[in-house]
Simulated assay, not measured.
Amino acid sequence: MAKVILVFASMTGNTEEIAELVGKGVSDAGMELVVRELPAGEPKELEDYDGIILGSYTYGDGELADEFLDFFDEMNELNLSGKLGAVFGSGDRAYDQFCVAVDILSDKLVEQGAELPLEGLKIELAPEDEEVCIAFGRSFAEKVKSVHA
């Protein structure tokens, strides 16, 4: 059975709420799911999964979450060829750079060889429509299942 790992960082709880909903979608689709809230988990662990979901809030003027910085740097050592990836995040449109962490993490997954079958999910602050997040997780799980059946 294909396995999915979800790694996220949350400061105010918004990204954690999104992670829970995305995870629900993955689980509802019948996938085995492991969740790590940073700083727990090691980047090398990503190589053990068929699907990788990363989630982060965008901090300040378009910066990756502090909790993600070391993890992000250590991802340079990974070979994620053959893996599917997805990225979600929370942000605030009051800043010029909205949810840039999603783009930063998406680019890193691609650089390391992963394929991204879905556009990154960008949520302003907290999710208003929970089903959007659940559907994102479910859709990703279905993509992983179709490739790794």
Rank of each mutant, 00 (worst) to 15 (best):
D70H: 10
V4C: 01
Y59W: 15
G13E: 04
A141M: 09
E47P: 01
P127F: 07
E20D: 13
E63W: 11
A94F: 15
Y57C: 04
K145S: 14
G91L: 13
L125P: 00
A65S: 15
D73V: 00
D96C: 03
G82W: 10
L78A: 12
G13V: 05
T58S: 08
K122D: 06
L116E: 11
E37P: 02
G62S: 07
S90C: 13
T15R: 01
E111H: 01
A29K: 02
A126H: 01
L118Y: 12
L121E: 09
E16W: 03
D70S: 14
G91T: 09
L121C: 06
A9I: 05
V147E: 15
I134V: 15
G51Q: 04
I123M: 08
F140V: 09
L105A: 03
E37V: 04
T15G: 02
I134K: 15
A141Y: 08
C99Y: 13
G51L: 08
G82T: 10
A2H: 09
H148M: 08
C133P: 08
V110A: 14
N14T: 03
E42Y: 09
S146M: 09
G120V: 11
E20C: 03
E63D: 15
G13I: 05
A94G: 10
L118M: 13
A135M: 06
F68M: 15
G23R: 07
R138T: 05
E47H: 03
D48R: 07
K44S: 15
F8Y: 15
R138G: 00
G113Q: 12
D103A: 13
S56L: 05
K44F: 12
I123S: 07
L33D: 08
Q97R: 04
E74L: 13
L105V: 06
K3Y: 04
D103R: 04
E131C: 01
V4W: 01
N14Y: 12
E142Q: 13
